[in-house]
C-alpha cells in the first residue's frame, strides 16, 4: 500500500517543460531515489509534491487523499514533509528553537515541543549544538538541522533533497545510517541525491529523470545496467561500447 502516489506530474515554465509525465509510488519503509543530471527536474518534482508549485497536469495523493489545491502547510500537517536543497534554517534562532518550530505541529505546548526537539536532536547526534545559533553552523550541521526540523513534524512520507551535499565522507556515512533507521521506522522516503555510492547503498528503487522525463526505473542493479541511463550519464559511445 503506497503512502505517496504521484501520477503523470507535468510542469511547464513558459516554453520549457521542466517535468513531464512523472509517476511513482512511495511505500512505507522503502527508499525511492530520484537521480538525474543537473536540471533534470528533480527539485521541481519535490515542489510539485509539496504544493510549493502547482502542476499543469497530474496529481499527488497521500494515502487515498488527493492533495490537489492543498497548501504546503496543510500537506505537512497531513504527514508529507520535505527538506530544502538550499537549507532554510531560521538563522537568528538557536538550533533547539529551530527544531521546536517543527515539533510544534504535533505538540500541545512549547514545553512538549521542546522535549520532542531534544529527542530528535539527540537521534541526530546534535545535542551539543542545542544553544548554538543556526546561522553560525557549518554546512554539514546545517544539513543535519534541516533534517531535524522536518523529522520533528513526524512525517509519514519524507522527501530529502540532497542531504548529503557538502558533507565530508564520515558525515555521509553517518547520514546513510540515519536514513536507514528512518526506513526501519516505516517512513516512506523519497531521496534526491547526487552522491552515487549513497544512492546505491540506500535505494530500494531508483527513478532516473532526464530533461524532466523519466527514462528508467528499477532496482539499483537494473538501473545501472540500463543502456538509456548509461548514455544519459556517460554518453552514447560509452553505452554502445558496453553493450
Amino acid at each position: 500500500m503506497a503512502v505517496l502516489t504521484a501520477t503523470d506530474l507535468t510542469k511547464r515554465f513558459g516554453g520549457l517543460t521542466a517535468v513531464k509525465d512523472v509517476s511513482f509510488t512511495a511505500r512505507p519503509g522503502e527508499i525511492l531515489s530520484i537521480i538525474g543530471p543537473n536540471g533534470a527536474g528533480k527539485t521541481t518534482v519535490f515542489n510539485l509534491l509539496t504544493g510549493f508549485l502547482r502542476p499543469d497536469r497530474g496529481s499527488v495523493s497521500l494515502d487515498d487523499m488527493d492533495l490537489g489545491g492543498v497548501s504546503p502547510e496543510s500537506r505537512c500537517r497531513a504527514g508529507l514533509a520535505r527538506t530544502f536543497q538550499i537549507v532554510q534554517p531560521f538563522r537568528g534562532l538557536s538550533v533547539l528553537d529551530n527544531v521546536v518550530m517543527g515539533a510544534m505541529l504535533r505538540a500541545r505546548s512549547i514545553e512538549m515541543a521542546r522535549e520532542i526537539a531534544r529527542k530528535v536532536l539527540s537521534d541526530l547526534d546534535m545535542s551539543a549544538l542545542c544553544d548554538v545559533s543556526a546561522g553560525q553552523l557549518p554546512i554539514g550541521d546545517r544539513k543535519r538541522l534541516e533534517m531535524a526540523k522536518v523529522l520533528a513534524t513526524s512525517p509519514r512520507a519524507l522527501l530529502l533533497d540532497e542531504v548529503m551535499g557538502g558533507l565530508i565522507p564520515i558525515e555521509v556515512k553517518k547520514m546513510i545510517g540515519f536514513i536507514q533507521r528512518l526506513r526501519e521506522r516505516g517512513i516512506a522516503l523519497v531521496v534526491i541525491e547526487h552522491h552515487m555510492s549513497a544512492v546505491m547503498q540506500l535505494s530500494d528503487r531508483i527513478l532516473v529523470l532526464q530533461n524532466g522525463e523519466p527514462i528508467a526505473t528499477g532496482t539499483p542493479a537494473e538501473v545501472t545496467r540500463d543502456p538509456v541511463v548509461l548514455s544519459a550519464y556517460l554518453g552514447a559511445n560509452f553505452a554502445a561500447s558496453r553493450s
Partner: peptide, 10 residues
C-alpha cells in the same frame, strides 16, 4: 525569520 521554511514545517 523564513516564511518558506515555516510553511514547509506545517
Amino acid at each position: 525569520e523564513n516564511h518558506q521554511a515555516a510553511r514547509a514545517l506545517g
